[in-house]
Amino acid sequence: MSEREPVERDQAPSPSRRGFLAAVAAAAAGVMIAPGIRLIELAAARPAGEPASGAVRWGLLIDTTRCARGCEDCVAACARENALERRGETSVAETQRPQWIRKIELKELATGRELSLPMMCQHCARPPCVDVCPTGASFKRADGIVLVDQHRCIGCRYCMMACPYQARSFVHEPLARQNPAVPRGKGCVEGCTLCVHRVDRGLAPACVAACAEAGHGAMLFGDLNDPASAISRRLREVASVEVRADLRLGTGVRYQGI
């Protein structure tokens, strides 16, 4: 695979972007971490022993104009990365199968305009799931990633009732084939972790990497708090919205082209 990824093509045009890359990731630029996965924007893994920083807020910008109807590359990558059961891989009912990210096909009723977009945990600044969780198992990490501490989750599913995005799933059956880096188990609620195990190592989430790798470049990941990050600069330039902005949840995931 070439080091000049489509995502780079998408992010490259502005000179300051190049400057940023040079300054922050000079050494890392073009370095392959693992086959098919490359540093996209993160400078480096957080040093060992250091907690996630509140100075960072991870976020996503999804360009729906580049998201093709029927394309499920991000969904497949998520299932692969997090060892989620795909359709047909489990005996539970289809409504019981966990889906951390899904593609929603939309058609505007008044105009007939069609669009397609991925939907997952929106990593809200004020997440309802965290508010309602009786034990504090749902929590928001310092860097804005909303997670379930499955050691504390009792499986009451109130967070699933509270989430406006239907972003959480419940594990309905005993599991045995987890990814060692992504523990999951029966009786707990789970959802998109923004691939926290990858982000902590300086990698982009699997969905973002897959979207870039396939040449779609519809997902941009980065630090919303860093005005120089690619995502911050793009957010300043293009119109983007939060889904259900009326709820004032301050989502970390924003959409362009809705």
């Binding site: 693992a34 692969r80 990365e81 997090n82 060892a83 499955q150 005993p174 599991l175 084939r177 987890q178 990814n179 060692p180 880096a181 523990p183 999951r184 188990g185 029966k186 707990c188 691939c195 195990h197 990858r198 190592r201 990698l203």
Partner: peptide, 15 residues
């Protein structure tokens, strides 16, 4: 091991 994998594996990459 209800939730954690009892086998080793590379970080960030599915077995």
């Amino acid at each position: 091991f209800d939730c954690h994998q009892a086998r080793p594996g590379a970080e960030g990459v599915r077995r």
